[in-house]
Write a protein that binds this DNA or RNA. Sequence first.
DNA 1: CCTCAATGTGGAACCGGTTACACATATAAA
DNA 2: TTTATATGTGTAACCGGTTCCACATTGAGG
Lengths: 329, 329
Amino acid sequence: MATIRDVAKHAGVSVATVSRVINETGYVHEDTRRKVETAIRELHYTPNEVARSLYKRKSRLIGLLLPDITNPFFPELARGVEDEMQANDFRIIFGNSDENRKKEKDYIQTFVQNNVVGVIASTNHPDNDTYRKLDIPVVFLDRTADNRPSVYSDGREGGRIAAQEMLSRGSRKITVIKGPKHIRPAQDRYQGAIDVLSNEGIAFNVIQTSSYSFTEAGTWAKELFEKHPDTDGVIASNDIVATAVLHEALRLGKKVPDDVQIIGFDDIPLSTLLTPSLTTIRQPAYDMGRAAASLLIQLIENENVDNKTIQMPVTFTERDTTRKVEQHG
Amino acid sequence: MATIRDVAKHAGVSVATVSRVINETGYVHEDTRRKVETAIRELHYTPNEVARSLYKRKSRLIGLLLPDITNPFFPELARGVEDEMQANDFRIIFGNSDENRKKEKDYIQTFVQNNVVGVIASTNHPDNDTYRKLDIPVVFLDRTADNRPSVYSDGREGGRIAAQEMLSRGSRKITVIKGPKHIRPAQDRYQGAIDVLSNEGIAFNVIQTSSYSFTEAGTWAKELFEKHPDTDGVIASNDIVATAVLHEALRLGKKVPDDVQIIGFDDIPLSTLLTPSLTTIRQPAYDMGRAAASLLIQLIENENVDNKTIQMPVTFTERDTTRKVEQHG
DNA sequence: CCTCAATGTGGAACCGGTTACACATATAAA
DNA sequence: TTTATATGTGTAACCGGTTCCACATTGAGG
């Protein structure tokens, strides 16, 4: 690998001049510029980002911390982040936290050790010192923390919508699947749903789950129909469990949506391809990723950001696991 | 952020000694060690990886390049890589290539600029100079290149198995979905399938697709049943299209597997949760990721590696989109 | 013709680590 | 007692960039 000194020698100038050419700073005579550019080309020189980063105490790297890329919601988010970052010449150091504080902390630390200029994190503990003490901008994604920069969608509202739509479509024996305790958005959704149910005076059952994993989802679906066989409406904590519930319902010979209606959450890409396709509360994951990246970049570049917390819309996405409701008025 | 000089001053020793303590190299008196360790703790010192990386010309970073994290097969792979790397204190710079050579090249370049010590790449052009000229180890994942380190599974064999199982279960009007031309494993699978079909003298139809995207998958499924409505067996190029085909078949009122059998490829996590659940040719994605990471680490650490190309088994994973075949013998 | 600002360039310090080397001391072997 | 070896520590160069500052040259304005 050629260094800046090689280029300087080859072009017959000083390293300072080469640096000026590369960074387009200060004065450089046109002829000199050309000489340097030729040398750069001939030596296939590319600047060493590490050396740069050391002096500037800033890299072109950002840290991205997500709970688990294996959950289909997160790749969408990640992809949004990546595309926006890529477009702005930032690269990503990536880690899965498994919603585990130690892993989180370790990752944040190595992010810092690698001079990242910003962090996007999906954490349940934004108020933790790990984040508070960071002196680089952090954007919380799919999570909120009051007044700290974040991009999220309103889980509570989503839960409410799910419950309302479920009710307006006639289900009365509703089972709500309560996502893992330590996952904030899961709890928000649950709260939103039971807000509405309680207000309307509708009794409901709850199935508590402890992870979002594919393998366990089936277990909870089984548990649901064993404990509450007369359920005629399921509000799931995300599309994975919703899919498992759908699978189990069909296995039991129930008709969906006639016997049981199901509403999921997230709108992962596969939801449309299920049969019947899954009605769900959509979060615009890809756009959320992009928005978070864009917000972080603004923060990094010290631009004045008026809107530090961006709430994205949740939308009821009607498909075939819910009954059609006749239009009136 | 405290630097090594701060620690040295605080402990009343030289930076060299601090460095020796941190890296456990050379001789350090027990008492000195303790003083230094105390100072490190008190100052919350963590070494700056960038400075390290600059001097050593080696970081603890590796580059991971995957086509598209949005395709559910890749998160499994990525997770395997991450877990293994994490366990060995390596971090990941991540990028999506979209199977696009320019993006690939750009990413590889920034990997190099950031002093990564190794690269794991899923590329269709392993023989490209981009990789040939790298002076750090590269492991190809989900792709082969003769004699270069790689972890993959035998797509051709997978295609053969799919075709055999399809035939042994009685389908005779088979449509093979041919994955995108530029994606090697897709072509291998296709070749494997038509090898068997041709050998057996079975006529078959082909649907050519040009991407693995969720949104387009539905289009090809529709095209399939429009062009070849009498199809009684579909060999899909991966589980995404298989899912779309299943969805479309059911929509058309076909019985699966009675009227149409479907075999997918990959065994993405959702396959079990479809109804009927998807029969597929499984690749052990997570294990492949781990294996690739483990191989790369060996290469990085200059260990003698006897087996540089690791072929993982493809296994016929029988579920409910294929008919049961009676056991004999 | 003189002055001053704009233009152009290079030397060297600096970022925060690692390590070669020099030097000192303690210990064991001869 | 001498010598070789193991142990312990510090100084300074180095990694490959960036940037401050000093210095030279040019041209415009007075």
